[in-house]
Design a binder for these strands. Structure first.
Lengths: 145, 145
DNA sequence: TTTATTTAAGACTAAACGGTCTGAATATGG
DNA sequence: CCATATTCAGACCGTTTAGTCTTAAATAAA
């Protein structure tokens, strides 16, 4: 089981961070991505297809084709990727699963989780993927291994 | 999709919190629990069966039978319940799904998530389920509605 | 002792998620 | 024009999770 985000969302994040290190506009093939990141080929194809439909990515068919970020890496956060893949349910649901949980009728973790959730939100929006990808590269980030 | 814990783990937590409000040793039937908490009858039966096998609950067959906490509510935390149902994977896995993520080879969220994860841990162990259940009752907690 | 009520156990079904396969469409370069 | 490399699209399959059903075993009370 994944921690918070679905498997395909994790893959999407990893692949988008990989694209963020490429020169703007350069096309990268699914083949390269899945080899470098160790992600199932056709599965990432599906995921990227959807992200291209939502304009988070641009795509081009044919040889020299592939995918690129739909806008500058400086203008994309992890939150954007998560929104596009998993949606934003996780920002709203009660962490203990109580349907009736609310400020007026709080569960035992309502306020504590509210604080944590805000922190997670900040974690996802305070840096763009260009910075994040650079940080990972700096600290000897290796995609495979 | 649930936030962090599986559906059955959420059910387990809800039901255990319900038991925590009962006089120690009093048996509560699956029927009462599933009615009050709006949980599928047979599913909670399965979940509680496993929790009884792990001694987190005690059980008794026959009329006047049912389930009770295996030890004092003061000696049980949500962490205990989560450990018994979902296990502790979520405390170890990389939030972005990188297999290779570690202190030496950190992902872009490694340190930020570490801090958040510690907070979540505190959230789960700093109060016992007796206190938690009382807190919820105080603030007009109603299981069904 | 009989009946009713409850958990125990395991097989079963349904839905969600992860992943694969195939063929068509599109673009490039020779 | 032709061969090749790529995405696009949709059907398909496998695994995990959620949830159901049935029967047996145990217990209590009449």
């Amino acid at each position: 089981m994944s921690v918070i985000f679905s498997r395909q969302c994790e893959y999407a994040i990893q692949a988008v961070l990989y694209l963020a290190l490429k020169p703007q506009g350069e096309m990268t093939s699914i083949k390269e991505l899945t080899k470098q990141l160790n992600i199932p080929y056709h599965f990432l194809g599906k995921i990227f297809q959807r992200l291209a439909a939502k304009a988070l990515l641009s795509s081009l068919k044919g040889p020299t084709g592939g995918f690129a970020l739909g806008r500058s890496a400086k203008d994309i956060t992890l939150f954007d990727v998560i929104d596009a893949v998993d949606g934003l349910e996780f920002t709203q649901k009660c962490v203990l699963g109580f349907d009736s949980c609310s400020g007026r009728n709080p569960c035992a973790l309502h306020s504590a989780w509210g604080k944590t959730r805000d922190e997670i939100y900040q974690m996802l929006v305070s840096k763009n993927i260009a910075e994040m990808a650079r940080d990972m590269k700096k600290s000897e980030y290796r995609s495979v291994q």
